[in-house]
Design a binder for these strands. Sequence first.
DNA 1: CTGAAAGCGCTAACAC
DNA 2: GTGTTAGCGCTTTCAG
Lengths: 329, 329
Amino acid sequence: MTTRDIAAELALSVSTVGRALSGDSRISEPTRIRVEAKALELGYVGNTAARLMRGAPSNVVAFMIPDVRNTFYTAAAHALTQSLGSLGVQVMLSETNDDPATELAQIRGMAAARVAGVILTPSPTPKRESIRLLADIPHVQLLRHDRVLGSHWFGVDDAGVLRDATDHLIRLGHERIAYVGGHAGLSTADARLRGFRDAVRGDGCDDLIVRIRPSEVTDARGALRALLDLPSPPTALVTASIRATEGVLEELNDLGIRVPSDLSVVGFGDEPGFSWWGPGLTTMALPVHEIATQCSTWFHQRLTDGWSDTPYRSSSHGYLLERGSTAAA
Amino acid sequence: MTTRDIAAELALSVSTVGRALSGDSRISEPTRIRVEAKALELGYVGNTAARLMRGAPSNVVAFMIPDVRNTFYTAAAHALTQSLGSLGVQVMLSETNDDPATELAQIRGMAAARVAGVILTPSPTPKRESIRLLADIPHVQLLRHDRVLGSHWFGVDDAGVLRDATDHLIRLGHERIAYVGGHAGLSTADARLRGFRDAVRGDGCDDLIVRIRPSEVTDARGALRALLDLPSPPTALVTASIRATEGVLEELNDLGIRVPSDLSVVGFGDEPGFSWWGPGLTTMALPVHEIATQCSTWFHQRLTDGWSDTPYRSSSHGYLLERGSTAAA
DNA sequence: CTGAAAGCGCTAACAC
DNA sequence: GTGTTAGCGCTTTCAG
């Protein structure tokens, strides 16, 4: 079903049909009606590919995240689809698994499809080719940030979040505070560790810092066991990622550690379930929804006003949600 | 950057360039190398739209779900992207919010983009127009099932799951068993209620059955309060959706109900957190990952072998995960 | 082994 | 108010 088919049936020209369908003011009311009726009757559906080729702007924005099962990212995805959807933009969600090769493959696809733009949480070490391709596509980074990909970024004040989490434990009198977070090279993980170090002011022992692979819940479980097996184990613990938090909570449960009497814990993020874990998890809540919404409206604005490379960076603050998992040392 | 640009730079024809890039055997080795080098140098990226217009098959499959934040669906999304991704198919994830109008808008977009196919969890009452559009697009339903959309379906044996959940409580001697599940009209919700009714064999009182709106956690909280306020409250409860389960768990926590002594509970699905809720939630685990993987391989097969309308339906069974939330009456 | 030309569906400039 | 024509980037005959 093409405009030509409609034109033939109505003994009109394709351009008249095209104009009628796009509501061109020059077309007479009766013809417009006839054309629209016929289009409906024949089940005509415009061809995006053809329009794109004519230079029409694409209305799809890609959103690339490491893991669709991580509620940290799906909260963002939801906010994005809501916000962009209302502006008539389709969001194409894709998953990289934190694998640079997969990421590159996805970006290739996006470039070939001439998407209007890309919003992404980059993998730890993007391929050179990915960087090159993204240079020609309007894009913004969300949550994580890699300088080589540009300087448009919306995210969390990661250092501040961990500083606040750790300060809370320090104020409670804890001195041996352990840290379980993401591995080196990730912008977010590095910033969070920096925040932790700021808070402990050099009083932290390096044997209390464990960095795990992203998205690996089992790593976090192992990390906790190792920490508790130390000659002088920690009296408190902060986690610096959703996955790390989940792993630690599960392992604490399995091991039967009493919280907060044996160990005080401050988590990262506020997932469903954190509130009903043990005595209720004291945790750092993060405004992911707000961040993603801001990001999408800003991005859409830039896209429609004409893309510019003027850097823009915005970071939002988390806040402590006090529940039952922390107590005085 | 187009094939023409490359051709011009190399004093070749567009067709030669096109052939070289697609690895046509007729092109001499040296020319091929030269073309590929130039393409790389100029950062050439093929244009999907142009290829599509030439009749090339689309390599994107849409996946439409009610809510990206629901881990029930994201588990499926993950399985799909993994499985289809390895076959070179891009998955375009979109969210309907269980709103038929949004759903229609999305389907329009998919039809216009000429996607290769659609995998969807339909909204409760698809619009007539959605049905018409889908009739011309290869599609399969996942989890939920609406007959008007066709008879290709992969899902859970919903009736069986609720029957097993309820049987477990009956064997423990419970007689007043409450049900909190999705509202009428949804294939899954109807099947689950049927399973529940089968199990109680007419011994169930209708005042113990509450049906809530999909995706509404707060409805479930209200439902629980209403049930507990009954003149003769239930001694046990089954939930028939992830959201219903989450709502009930939160409310039980807030109300300080002792489980299983005051009330036995069997949940639906096995989300992170269900294991550490109170005494550990006894729940029905569902093989969502397996279902989605099966669905995607089957779908891809049909797509590549040429689409046929021969009905295919597959349902997988859940199993009871016994933890601490159920006890003898 | 390579080139010329047609055409996929649509829109916009240019007639009338 | 409507028709004609050209061309977006690519592949694919059909000719050399």
